[in-house]
């Protein structure tokens, strides 16, 4: 998909993902204020499905040739179901962003949940994730980010 990207560019893409996530939660939370969390999630997924379909159609001819990183074998059936926990994510975010937790508080607790999940899956290889032991540096980075995030949340 992105054949020219190597090394730390993936780290930058992950950072960009975080920027997009915060914006997405903000916008979906806004939509939820005008309707409900469930309804805004439904609308967001419908619009997203259409947008993704459009993008896939536009790039399909090019990417078919450049898709060199694909894993061997067929994708397992369960791997098509990532949208199920994803759908609950928007519903839950719509609820907590409009609660006393606010945007930052919601982000803080979601981030703890994500790190717990990350530690478990990296160690045990759940969901077919490549197993990788945590290095000292990973631990230091995680502590820095968690501490910085906590500072941001509790100083509001």
């Amino acid at each position: 998909m992105f054949p020219m990207l190597k090394g730390s560019t993936n780290l930058l893409l992950a950072l960009l993902g975080g920027v997009l996530l915060a914006l997405m939660i903000k916008l979906n939370g806004e939509l939820a204020r005008y309707s409900s969390a469930l309804f805004s999630s439904w609308v967001a997924h419908g619009i997203g499905a259409l947008a993704a379909l459009l993008i896939v159609c536009l790039i399909s001819t090019k990417s078919a040739r450049h898709h060199t990183n694909s894993s061997p074998g067929k994708a397992p059936r369960w791997s098509y179901l990532g949208g199920i926990p994803g759908a609950f994510t928007v519903v839950l975010a719509g609820i907590t962003v409009n609660s006393p937790l606010g945007l930052a508080g919601s982000l803080a607790l979601m981030m703890v949940g994500q790190v717990i999940f990350g530690l478990l899956t990296d160690q045990r290889g759940w969901f077919g994730v490549p197993r990788r032991p945590l290095t000292r540096r990973d631990e230091l980075v995680t502590v820095c980010v968690l501490a910085g995030s906590a500072l941001i949340i509790f100083s509001r």
């Binding site: 915060a22 790190v115 990296d122």
Partner: peptide
């Protein structure tokens, strides 16, 4: 890059944007 590092970096972008 793995699940933990993805989570930590996404969180970083998220928090600063927040």
């Amino acid at each position: 890059i793995g699940t933990t590092r993805t989570a930590v970096l996404v969180i970083s972008g998220q928090m600063v944007t927040g």
